[in-house]
Design a protein around this nucleic acid. Sequence first.
DNA 1: ATAGGGTTAG
Length: 739
Amino acid sequence: MNFYERCWGIERANRVFNEMPKREDVVWNEAVKLNVKHEQWVRALELLREMQYSCMKVKGTTTVRVLQACGKLKALAQGKQIHAHVLRFGMESSVPICNVLISMYAKNGELELAGAVFNSMEDRNLTSWNSIISAYASFGFLDDAWNHFHKLKSSTIKPDIVTWNCLLSGHTLNGSYEDVLTILRMMQIYGIQPNSRSITCGLQSVIELGLLPHGKEIHNYVIRHDLDCDVYVGTSIVDMYAKRDCLDIARAVFNNLKSKNIFAWNSLISGYSFKGHLQDAENLVGQMEDAGIKPDIVTWNSMVSGYSMWGHTEKALDMIHQIKLSGLTPNVISWTALISGCSQNGKYRESLEYFIQMQEEGIKPNAVTISTVLQSCGGLSLLQKGKEIHCLSVKNGMTRDVCVATAIIDMYNKSGSWRSAHKVFKRIHKNSLASFNCMIMGFAMYGLGKEAISLFHEMCSIGITPDAITFTAILSACKNSGLVNEGWEFFDKMSRDYNVTPKIEHYSCMVDLLGRAGYLDETWDFIQKMPLKPDATIWGALLCSSRIHENIEYAEIAAKNLYELEPDNSANYVLMMNLYAMSNRWKDFDHVKELMNSAGLKNGQAWSWTQIDHTVHHFSAGQSTHPDCGEIYFELYQLISQIKKLGYVPDVSCVYQDIDDVEKEKVLLSHTEKLAITYGLMKRKGSAPIRVIKNSRICSDCHTVAKYISMLRKCEIIIKDGVRFHHLSKGNCSCKDCW
DNA sequence: ATAGGGTTAG
């Protein structure tokens, strides 16, 4: 039989077997084992059944082999049949057979059955214990695994390296990386030498936890125990250094590797690419090819991701082309890398275009792709497109994914529809810290301070601990709703009760909160006492508040710092010019204007847009480019005269030009958000809210006009300005006029 | 006869 197997393979061997006139038990057993070895599963089982029918003796070793195969092939039904056979022929007292039964059930995910077999055993050896501990650990039932470990320790049998490694890999799979390191320490206490498998678990944990010193310790251990010739260990070390930004060390370790497989190359390349050393990464790809290793899809994807993340979209696209040239097909990860890079760099439009292109090439998006694309929709406030993607994710059952759910909430918040965001939020079964943060931030953006605060309390009451991001959200909610006392309270509480040290963004919120409320001296005091060096956000907040409350003294201090910290930000110059204009200080006005000109800066173009059906309508300051321009102005004049009857008085202080009030009133009319709102009113169908996006901050006059229009025409108007959202209805705004 | 079988890209 063996001879035939060697010369002509399993089929020939089976034929010879069938032609044998008289077949002994031994031959039958050999035939079954052989078929299992060649993964001729059906045939092996047929033979086994024939043996059972003819009451032949099936040897223990044969049974073990077949059960092993049932585990590997996840053939639960067949496994159970053999289990029945084992019971019928009284083989259940055999320790090896029970051991393999445990393993078979575990591999098929039947932990209860595995446990039942283990419990029914009269005698157990170390392998039995290892099998059951491995079963529980590999499915994340770590408590059960430890329980059995402790029972084992109180018996006469001693755990070995396999036992420990089962626990290590269980904790690694479960993501409890601190525990992995603790177990490694325990092993040393018990005098068990970690082997290469233990080490790879440890290294993976060190990478996830970002504990480079521990990693170096493990590296030393590896060198001392000659484990660095293990391919997996070597690659993990390269990977660790590459991920922790120690590219030189990573390269040195890599160069010393005895055998360099594709994983090692890829780890190094991804390290260089991720850090933005793209030329080095590309050179490595060349070297890898010279060494006779063909770059695979992972190699190329590292390159796509690097280029795309660092803003070189064209090169990323070029890499996608290269993938095709090398005979491979760009997969969902290649495309997601490209799309995500665009989105992260603010190239939202491009990212949406590539999303379409990806689908045209027959690649289906997954949850990561969807979350990324939703970010792009939010970035552009494209509510319609965002809704489409939301539908797509529902259709594909992706809303259960925490990242997708959070991205949907964020998209609705950023697209002017906090109600939809809230609806999605409430429908999520188990909200996470991230989704709470996202929704609190959403309320904050609309000036819904009370709602944000009550959500904060709800979150704490169900046992979720707020983090630094939660406090940024809650403080900006207080800031956007003018809740000074509440803001102070949260600021005190965060370090006192929640052990979160305030960062610069928290200080910035406080400066904004105090300043806008008019407590400028207190704000100044606060900045002086801050333990951190004030940055542009702090001075920017002070400048804004000083402008609102027309305090030239503080404004000038803030501006002086800002001109140094961000000389290219025209907004700072413009704010200063506004302030001087308000106080009729035209000489100072001209001075700032010169300063701005000499820095080569222009006053940014103001624009607004609104979406009607599937078309985006753009309105730019000083241009009457819209085809329906005449009609829009006609409608606007009528609206203005109607709201004047309701009490509207134009706020000419919003015009910072040295002209008379009649002229100023005309200038007010041309503000782009008014045109966009008017157009939205003209074209809207039914009672859908009018949504307008504006690149800079809305002025107080437009804000007032929008409030009156919402009252007059009984409509909802949602305006996103450079900073936040305004949700207007029935003559009121969600921001309660504190901006 | 029986236990563990890993590392890279979004």
